[in-house]
C-alpha cells in the first residue's frame, strides 16, 4: 500500500496536474472576469476551440509559434467581441448568446478545416511549438516536489499562473477591478459614478476572450503541434464548473482548476499502475464524482455577483 502511494504521489503527478489544469485555469479565469462584470459566459468552450484553430493556422502559416500565440489570443478576443456585441449591445440572453457561440465554433472550425487544409480531423503540423520554449526559473524550480511543476514550464502555463496573480491584484487594487466588480454588483451605481457599464462589460468579455484564446493555443501549439477537431473536449464546461466551485474569485478558481487537474492526473496514473483491479470506467468517473463532492462541501457561502446574467440598459436600469 505504502509502496503504491509512493509510486503515485510523485513530483511528476504535480507536473501532470499543472499541465491538465493550465487550459482550465485560463478559461475559468475568463469566466470569473466575465461573470464578475455581470455577463454570464458559457461560451468558453467555443472561444477556446476558435483560439486553438487560429493559433495552429497562424503558427503553421508563419512558422512562428509566438505569432500563433498572438493569433490564438486575437481570434479569441475577436470571437468574444462578437459575443459581447450580442449579449451587451443586442441585449441577448447571455446563456443564449453563449450557446450560439459554442454551436457556431464547432461548425466554423470544421468548415474552416476544409477551406484551409482541404481535409477534416487534424491540421498540418506546425514547424515549432511553444513547448520548445520551456524555461526553468532559477532557484524556484529547485523547490522540492512542486518546483518543477510550477517553475519549469512552457510559456502559456506561465501565462495561466500569471493570470491568477494578475486578476487577484486587479480586483483588489485597480480602478478596472473596481469597475468590473461594480458592473456586476451595482451597475446603476457605476453608471451614476460616470463610468460606462457597457464599456466595462465589453472590456471584461474581450479580456476573457484573450484568455480563452490562449487556452486554445495551449492545446494546439504548446501541448500538441496541430489542431484537432473538437480538441477542447469539454474543458470550457469544466472551466464553468471551476468558476462556480471556486466561488467567482481568482485564487479559489485557481485551486478548483488545480483540483480538477489533480483528480484527473491521479486516476490516469492509478490506471497505469494497475494495482486497483476495477473496470476503467470507475477510474474515469472519479473526477466528476469528486467535483460534485467538492462543490457540495466547498461552496456553501459563495454567491454569484448580484447582477450577473441580467441585461443592462441605462433607461431600464440593471434589470
Amino acid at each position: 500500500m505504502m509502496e503504491t502511494l509512493a509510486a503515485l504521489f510523485t513530483p511528476q503527478l504535480v507536473e501532470a496536474t499543472v499541465r491538465l489544469a493550465a487550459p482550465v485555469i485560463l478559461a475559468a479565469m475568463a469566466a470569473v472576469v466575465c461573470e464578475r462584470s455581470g455577463v454570464t459566459n458559457i461560451a468558453m468552450e467555443g472561444i477556446m476551440l476558435v483560439g486553438a484553430f487560429f493559433a495552429a493556422l497562424v503558427a503553421w502559416y508563419t512558422g512562428s509559434p509566438w505569432l500563433g500565440l498572438v493569433g490564438g489570443a486575437a481570434a479569441g478576443a475577436l470571437y468574444s467581441l462578437f459575443f459581447a456585441w450580442a449579449a451587451i449591445s443586442l441585449h441577448f440572453n447571455h446563456v443564449v448568446a453563449g450557446a450560439i457561440m459554442n454551436i457556431l465554433a464547432f461548425g466554423l472550425t470544421r468548415y474552416l478545416m476544409m477551406v484551409a487544409y482541404g481535409r477534416q480531423g487534424t491540421s498540418n503540423a506546425v514547424a515549432r511549438t511553444l513547448h520548445d520554449y520551456k524555461t526553468a526559473i532559477p532557484v524556484l524550480s529547485d523547490i522540492p516536489f512542486i518546483g518543477k511543476a510550477f517553475f519549469d514550464q512552457t510559456p502559456i502555463v506561465y501565462l495561466a499562473l500569471l493570470s491568477v496573480v494578475a486578476w487577484a491584484w486587479i480586483f483588489k487594487r485597480t480602478r478596472l477591478g473596481l469597475s468590473i466588480e461594480a458592473s456586476g454588483e451595482y451597475p446603476m451605481a457605476l453608471e451614476t459614478m460616470g463610468r460606462s457599464v457597457v464599456k466595462t462589460r465589453y472590456t471584461a468579455v474581450v479580456l476573457g476572450g484573450v484568455m480563452c484564446g490562449l487556452a486554445g493555443a495551449f492545446l494546439s501549439i504548446e501541448n500538441s503541434n496541430s489542431f484537432t477537431e473538437g480538441m477542447t473536449d469539454g474543458r470550457g464546461f469544466i472551466a464553468l464548473a471551476a468558476n462556480i466551485a471556486g466561488g467567482w474569485r481568482p485564487v479559489g478558481v485557481f485551486l478548483a482548476s488545480l483540483f480538477f487537474g489533480f483528480v484527473d492526473a491521479l486516476q490516469l496514473r492509478a490506471q497505469g499502475l494497475g494495482v486497483i483491479d476495477l473496470p476503467s470506467e470507475l477510474f474515469l468517473v472519479f473526477p466528476y464524482v469528486a467535483t460534485i463532492a467538492a462543490v457540495a462541501g466547498l461552496v456553501k457561502r459563495s454567491r454569484p455577483p448580484a447582477a450577473v446574467g441580467k441585461d443592462f440598459s441605462v433607461e431600464g436600469g440593471g434589470d
Binding site: 499541465r19 477537431e229 480538441m231 484527473d264 490516469l268 497505469g272 470506467e281
Partner: peptide, 25 residues
C-alpha cells in the same frame, strides 16, 4: 505491459497525459 484508458476517442491532451504517465512509470 501497462495500459491506460483515456475515456474518449477525441481528447488529444488526455491521450498525451496518459502517455506521459506511462513514460513516468
Amino acid at each position: 505491459v501497462r495500459y491506460i484508458v483515456a475515456g474518449s476517442f477525441g481528447d488529444r491532451a488526455k491521450g498525451k497525459e496518459a502517455t506521459i504517465a506511462l513514460i513516468d512509470q
